[in-house]
Amino acid sequence: MKAKEVVSEMWSALMTNSDPNVIDQYVNPDYRQHSPYVKNGPDGLRDLLATLRPDYRYEPIRFIGDDHFVVMHGIHHNWLNNIMTGGEVVVGIDIFRVENDQIAEHWDASVPIAPASISGRSQFDGPTEITNPELTEVSRKTAEHYVKDVLINKRVEEINQWVSEEVIQHNPAIGDSITALRAALESSEKDYRRIHRIVAEGELVAVQSEGAVRGQVHTFWDVLRIDVTGKIVEMWQVAAVFPDIVPHANGPF
Rank of each mutant, 00 (worst) to 15 (best):
K2I: 03
K4Q: 11
K4R: 13
K4T: 12
V6K: 00
V6M: 01
S8R: 08
M10L: 15
W11G: 06
W11P: 00
S12Q: 13
A13D: 12
A13I: 01
T16R: 10
T16H: 14
N17A: 14
S18D: 08
S18T: 07
V22M: 04
Q25L: 14
Y26H: 06
D30C: 10
Y31C: 04
R32M: 14
Q33E: 13
H34R: 10
S35T: 09
Y37L: 14
Y37T: 13
V38Y: 08
V38S: 00
K39A: 15
P42D: 08
P42L: 08
P42E: 06
D43N: 15
G44Y: 02
L48F: 12
L48T: 13
L48G: 03
L49T: 04
T51H: 07
L52H: 08
D55S: 14
R57N: 12
Y58R: 08
R62G: 05
R62N: 09
R62K: 14
G65A: 15
D66K: 01
D67Y: 02
D67V: 01
F69T: 01
G74M: 07
G74D: 11
I75E: 06
H76R: 07
H76M: 11
H77I: 03
W79T: 00
L80M: 12
N82D: 15
I83T: 08
M84T: 07
G87L: 02
V89T: 14
V89C: 09
V90A: 07
G92Q: 12
I93Y: 02
I95L: 14
I95Q: 05
Q102V: 11
I103D: 00
I103R: 02
I103F: 04
A104N: 05
A104R: 13
E105P: 03
E105I: 04
D108F: 00
S110G: 09
P112I: 02
S119R: 10
G120S: 11
G120Y: 13
R121A: 11
R121G: 10
D125L: 05
G126H: 02
G126W: 02
P127L: 07
T128L: 06
E129F: 02
I130Y: 05
T131G: 07
N132G: 06
T136R: 12
S139M: 02
T142E: 01
E144Y: 13
E144T: 10
H145W: 09
Y146L: 12
V156Q: 04
E157M: 05
E157F: 12
Q161P: 02
V163T: 09
E166F: 07
V167Y: 07
I168A: 12
Q169A: 06
P172Q: 10
I174E: 04
I174P: 00
G175R: 04
S188V: 01
S188F: 06
Y192S: 04
R193G: 10
R193K: 15
R194M: 09
I198D: 00
V199S: 00
V199I: 12
E201G: 00
G202T: 01
G202Q: 03
L204I: 09
L204H: 08
E210V: 03
A212N: 04
R214F: 11
G215D: 04
G215I: 02
D222Y: 04
D222K: 06
V223R: 01
L224W: 05
V228L: 14
T229K: 14
K231W: 03
M235L: 15
A240D: 08
D244T: 13
A249V: 11
P252F: 07
F253D: 02
